[in-house]
Structures are given as C-alpha cells and as structure tokens.
C-alpha cells in the first residue's frame, strides 16, 4: 500500500509540471506548425498563411530521398551489427566468469558515456591513420559503436534474469547447444533484443556528431537538415522532413518502451 496515493498533489506542483511539459514540447509543435507556413524565407510568427504545398515539394526533391535512404540503410545495418555483437557480448559477460570480465563490461558501455565528439575525433584519426577512405561503411562503423551498447545493455539485463538452471534443464531434457539457444534462450531474450534494436535504430537515425566526423561527401538525413537550415529557400521542406523524422524515431522508441515493460512481467513471473 502506498500511503501517498490518496493525497492530492498541491496545485503549485501541478502548474509547475504543466509548465515543464509545455517548455519541453512546445518547440516541437512549433516545428510542425512551420511545416504548413506560406512564408518560405524566414520563420515568421504567426505564419502569414497555411498551405500543404510543402509536402508535395518535399516529395519531389531527390536530395531528400537520397539522404533518407542513406539514413535508413545506415541505421538498419548498424542495428543488425549491434544485435549480433551486443547479444554475443552480453551472453559472454553474463554466462561465464573469466579474467577481466568486469573490465570488458565497462569497455563496452564506455562509448555511450563518452561525448560523441570524442568518439568522432577518435574514429576520424583512426581512419586517417589507416588510410581508410570515408564511405558508407565508415559511417556504419561509427554508428555501431553506440548501437552495440544499447543492445548490450538490454540483453545483459535479460540474461541476468534468465536463470542458468533453465539452460541446464534444457540440456538435461536432450537439447544440444543449438536447440537450447533456439527454444529456450532466444524466446526469453527476444523482446529485449527487439527493444534494444529499435532504440539503436532510433539513435542511429538522428545521429549528427559522430556522423560529421566519419562521413565523406554523403549526407545522412540529420546532416542534410543542418545544411538546409542555412539556405534561405524552401525552408518549410526541412520542417516537413523533421516531422517525418519525429514519427520515424518516436514510434520505435514507444514500441521498445512497451516491449520491455511487458517483458519484465514475463521474465519475472516464471520464478
């Protein structure tokens, strides 16, 4: 029983919370509004008129499509790499004891704690040193560094909750290593992997800093947007794209949130 549940929160607190939410979300709404403005050179408040023409304009601009396609491909491949590496790493760290286990665990998490600019500079100088030309794959390498962490964190938490005797029970009942992975381990970590993968995808999709250091001439969607803001022509196109980005990244994050919440209940109830 929680005793504070019956108490009403004071009015002042409610207003403060409301203001906080407005502060956080009003700018985002502003972006949506500007996607419909008739003024294309500057952001004028209130908008002189409303139009949906920018959606058509955006649709017909090849540079938007190029950037979008690059971002989707980068995010998809980085996520795939992260799922494989992150799961294997989590399995090793939580399933067996070996020398330096804690250190490895820390080293895997470090890239997400480091400022992106450090990761970016480090990768750039490493590529320069080894004379690897910037390409699609250097962007993916950069993104994989933090995507792996997200998947690893999700997977390791789930592995800890999957009791070791379940794996032994499976072997005892006649399942070899592969069958045990397929029928016992995978179903138990699947939602965690899906959630980790979606977060990784969302992170990769709107990454700017590491990308500026590891991309050559190519533009991912967020970088394209930065460039576009400097140009005083067809500005609302950027806002239309921003709306799409918000939707594309928000949906997987919401889904991941619900998946892990649900997964907690499933994993916890087996005990």
């Amino acid at each position: 029983m929680r005793s504070d549940r019956s108490q009403k929160s004071p009015l002042g607190l409610k207003i403060a919370a409301g203001l906080g939410l407005v502060f956080l979300h009003a700018p985002i709404l502003l972006i949506f509004v500007y996607a419909f403005t008739t003024e294309e050179k500057s952001y004028q408040w209130p908008p002189p008129g409303l139009t949906t023409q920018w959606f058509a304009v955006t649709w017909n601009r090849p540079d938007v499509w190029e950037a979008l396609s690059l971002s989707v491909r980068v995010a998809a491949i980085s996520t795939a790499i992260a799922i494989v590496l992150g799961t294997l790493c989590a399995a090793a760290v939580s399933r067996s004891k070996f020398f330096g286990r804690e250190t490895i665990s820390l080293l895997v998490i470090l890239p997400i704690a480091l400022p992106g600019i450090i990761t970016g500079i480090a990768l750039r100088s490493a590529f320069a040193l080894t004379e690897i030309p910037f390409s699609f794959w250097t962007i993916i390498l950069g993104h994989a560094t933090f995507c792996v962490v997200v998947v690893y964190n999700n997977a390791v938490a789930r592995f800890r909750r999957t009791s070791g005797s379940m794996i032994e029970a499976s072997m005892d009942l006649g399942a070899d290593g592969f069958q045990t992975f397929r029928h016992v381990v995978l179903p138990n970590i699947a939602t965690a992997l899906l959630a980790g993968g979606m977060l990784a995808f969302a992170l990769s999709f709107d990454e700017v800093i590491v990308t500026t250091f590891t991309a050559g001439q190519q533009q991912t969607l967020p970088i394209w947007m930065l460039e576009e803001l400097i140009r005083p022509r067809q500005r609302p196109v950027t806002n239309v794209v921003a709306m799409v980005v918000v939707l594309v990244t928000l949906l997987p994050i919401l889904l991941a949130y619900y998946l892990t919440r649900d997964g907690d209940q499933i994993a916890g109830s087996g005990k």
Binding site: M166, E168, A169, S170, N188, S269, G270
Partner: peptide, 10 residues
C-alpha cells in the same frame, strides 16, 4: 528434477 524446478516460463 531441479531444486528450483527450472520450468520454462515462455
């Protein structure tokens, strides 16, 4: 038969 039963929750 394991002490904690080790049934598969899924």
């Amino acid at each position: 038969v394991f002490q904690d039963y080790a049934l598969f929750p899924h």
